[in-house]
């Protein structure tokens, strides 16, 4: 079975007055039909720009400078705007972070839904209206007829995000890119939306890329994880195995910084130092200055390689390969990252 989406060495750079910002600088991952991928990283790691690059929605001065995006066998970078236009909203949909901002405040909900249907299919308004109504019912909005006559400001944040999801589901797309869709919401609403998305994707066979900085959210949702750091994917693999045994020191640090039941009472680990500026990345491995395991070898840039079966990492000294050595290193200070690095 071939992948629905496969991204190869994607590079999206922003050409600003103060220099080139390499927001995305070597992102590779692939996704099967119906699969859920968690794209994880700190703010500024390039995960959102990756999402926008897929749909060709990167605003100037940014543009894709290298790499390929193959969607269902077609190269989206080569296909350009005409091809992307037919795909956007139809086969690849997107959900944004802040539901307060994604709906046009001066247009009614029905207008904003119907136009999405009509943008891709030549159906009557009545038919489009019916489709919009069904989509609202599907995302759990009660009294949809009345709701459709409303303006966005009459909805709560959670409701708006449901509307945005309904719009994304209108054409039963093959892939949905969700850019931190629950970050701006209350925790209880977050859980609802999360469950809703999971259920919808399972029912319709839609693949999902869930972009987030919150490892805890995706660990229960995603089939696979891709961890990004400074514009690059540093680790990719099955969620359970990545969480259980991270390869890249950064992934390990990220996991250690999530509070869990078993670490109760212990001090939370933090990754020392600051994320590097994307204008001037350190030589070699971008994580080197913050990494406890770094040595001279890391002055060369590591490639994203398969380290274990089905698992890739961009590191010369991955964890979990030499269990015995790891155990020894880990012994004095649980993890060693925070202390030894400083």
């Amino acid at each position: 079975m071939t992948a629905l989406l496969s991204i190869e060495d994607l590079k999206t750079h922003f050409f600003t007055r103060d220099g080139v910002v390499k927001a995305v600088d070597g992102v590779s991952f692939s996704l099967m039909r119906g699969q859920i991928l968690g794209l994880v990283g700190e703010s500024g790691s390039g995960k959102s720009v990756t999402g926008f690059s897929l749909l060709g929605l990167v605003d100037p001065p940014g543009r894709i400078v290298d790499g390929s995006i193959r969607f269902d066998g077609e190269d989206l970078v080569k296909g350009g705007e005409p091809m992307l236009r037919t795909l956007r909203g139809k086969r690849i949909a997107m959900i944004f972070q802040d539901p307060m901002m994604t709906l046009n405040p001066v247009l009614r909900i029905d207008t904003q839904m119907i136009e999405t249907v009509l943008a891709h299919e030549n159906v009557s308004r009545a038919e489009a209206l019916k489709r919009a109504r069904d989509a609202l019912v599907m995302v759990g909005i009660s009294s949809p007829d009345e709701r459709m006559q409303s303006y966005p400001h009459q909805f709560s944040g959670g409701m708006r995000q449901r509307v945005a999801i309904a719009i994304a589901m209108l054409h039963k797309p093959d892939l949905i890119i969700a850019d931190e869709p629950t970050t701006a919401l209350d925790v209880t609403i977050q859980a609802q939306i999360l469950a809703e998305m999971q259920k919808l994707c399972a029912e319709t066979g839609t693949a999902l890329i869930w972009i987030t900085h919150d490892l805890a959210i995706v660990s229960g949702l995603a089939d696979r994880l891709a961890v990004m750091y400074a514009g690059r994917v540093v680790e990719e693999g099955e969620t359970a195995r990545v969480i259980e045994r991270p390869l890249h020191p950064y992934t390990k640090g990220l996991i250690a910084s999530v509070p869990q039941g078993k670490t109760r009472g212990a001090r939370l680990q933090q990754i020392s130092g600051m994320p590097p500026s994307l204008r001037s990345l350190p030589k070699g491995c971008a994580f080197r200055p913050r990494c406890a395991r770094a040595d001279e070898a890391c002055l060369e840039e590591p490639a994203l390689e398969e380290k274990l079966h089905g698992r890739k990492a961009r590191c010369f000294h991955p964890w979990s390969l030499d269990e015995a050595a790891d155990a020894r290193r880990q012994a004095p200070s649980r993890d060693g990252m925070a202390e030894t690095a400083t």
Binding site: F52, D59, L87, G89, F96, D98, T102, L103, A119
Partner: peptide
Amino acid sequence: QEYIKFARAKGLSSTRIVLVH
């Protein structure tokens, strides 16, 4: 504004985005 980007992500033509949104 995000809603313009969202409108583009919905696959609307630029004519509709400019003339309506």
